[in-house]
Design a protein around this nucleic acid. Structure first.
Lengths: 238, 238
DNA sequence: TATAATCGTCTAGAACTATATACAACTCAT
DNA sequence: ATGAGTTGTATATAGTTCTAGACGATTATA
């Protein structure tokens, strides 16, 4: 059950198993985990080791221990459904968590062949490029690079800087609604940049999602490549 | 770059970073890795720690060290492209590796609502259910549960037992070609069953892929849920 | 052949992880 | 109020990991 000698501390493995139990619904928000003594017996480890694992979970805000009472689930990993209208803030709020984000970088630059194709532009046409991160309750969930046709959305960066919302920025540019035209999902291993932006260890699993959003006339308005912390998110399709 | 105090040994992190470098093409098969001294300098660790990482890679068959010469890539993680025709054996052979697999279990049983829907059957209609694992060069890559309409493929288990190939089994049942009708990709954490079948530690990343294959008339012929060892596979879409 | 480069092995000490035992402090049920 | 259950803290020991330094063995190059 627990691997030893493989370079992953036993406490870490216990911590991850418990976290998986929260993600798969075994223990929902507010649920009481088994006692330390019980977990120690189950995992066949010393109670101190279990405490270390629980401490890790507590440090990450996933559980809260109450002396004499037990350890309770504060929040489970985020379920991130991909559908026609995928709106980060709505998803996070719907799970009683507070969304926030950061604009890391903004440039106006010529579209690369990949971006040009996705946005149905000629390579070299100007696009607005934004790098952003997304948090739930202050915990990094994803970071992304997005590209927008510069001609149609010249103020994208300014509005996003102000509002922190793509939906708001699109609305300000006259796009009242938009839908997901295309999604590609892959599994990656966190590199140094992921590690920094998502506050995870290099080598941890990362879900990479490439997508194109279109307005209701079918014109592409956004290409994005997002990388999610695989330990913090469960992606569902449909 | 390297996280300390997070329960993942430094050597393990170095090992995983090097493995990622092999996966993303930085070092292809046969390529010579940087020297131990160089890697120690780069990672800011003791050479002994680097040696531990390389030892791990060698133990897993990914590299081969030659004294006085260097350390060379034996093989990189498997790149697993998902497309209209996704055939495990072809993918593995194309990467100069030897595919193999095991039939773990076979039953004829009534279709669950999920399977029935995917195969356009009524719940309770009989399906052939197979549990299989897939290996490359003897290393477990994935395990899967598949379901087939029993009426159309009554001999699926027997033929698969003989040939170890779904493609061959379909052909024997008169389906000369089939395509991927639907794919759902998620990231999971390895549970006890994954750990056993994939020979990985519980808690390691697992890529879960639910799919439906159809014949060329669009009739669903197979539902499958596969779980890939995230450390051994890179999934690409398209 | 000699030299430089590189992996392999060895010894030693410090830091981290895991186990064991015990007691304190708090919560909850009776 | 009392007792049982549970988390919190402390001390000690053993095992593992990481660092450091040195030398041996093999390979590659001039």
């Amino acid at each position: 059950m627990l691997a030893r000698g493989k370079g992953i501390a036993v406490w870490r493995q216990v911590s991850e198993i418990l976290e998986a139990g929260m993600a798969d619904g075994t223990w929902g928000r507010g649920a009481r985990l088994p006692t330390e003594a019980e977990l120690a017996l189950r995992f066949g480890v010393n109670r101190h080791t279990v405490r270390q694992a629980l401490r890790d979970l507590a440090d990450r805000g996933l559980v809260r221990a109450q002396q004499g009472s037990g350890t309770f689930v504060e929040r489970a990993p985020l379920t991130y459904p991909i559908g026609p209208r995928t709106r980060f803030s709505d998803i996070v709020v719907a799970q009683a968590r507070e969304p926030s984000g950061l604009l890391l970088a903004e440039t106006a630059e010529p579209a690369s062949p990949l971006v040009a194709e996705a946005l149905r532009l000629r390579p070299g046409e100007p696009v607005i490029r934004l790098e952003t991160t997304r948090h739930a309750d202050g915990v990094p969930i994803s970071w992304a690079v997005s590209a927008f046709p510069a001609e149609r959305f010249p103020d994208m960066a300014a509005v996003y800087r102000e509002t922190g919302s793509f939906t708001a920025a699109f609305r300000a540019a006259g796009v009242a609604d938009y839908v997901r035209a295309e999604t590609r999902i892959g599994a990656r291993i966190a590199d140094a940049l992921d590690a920094e932006r998502l506050e995870i260890a290099i080598g941890r699993p990362v879900i990479e999602i490439d997508c194109v959003n279109s307005d209701l006339e079918g014109r592409p308005i956004q290409w994005a490549r997002a990388r999610f912390a695989g330990d913090r998110v469960r992606v569902t399709v449909g």
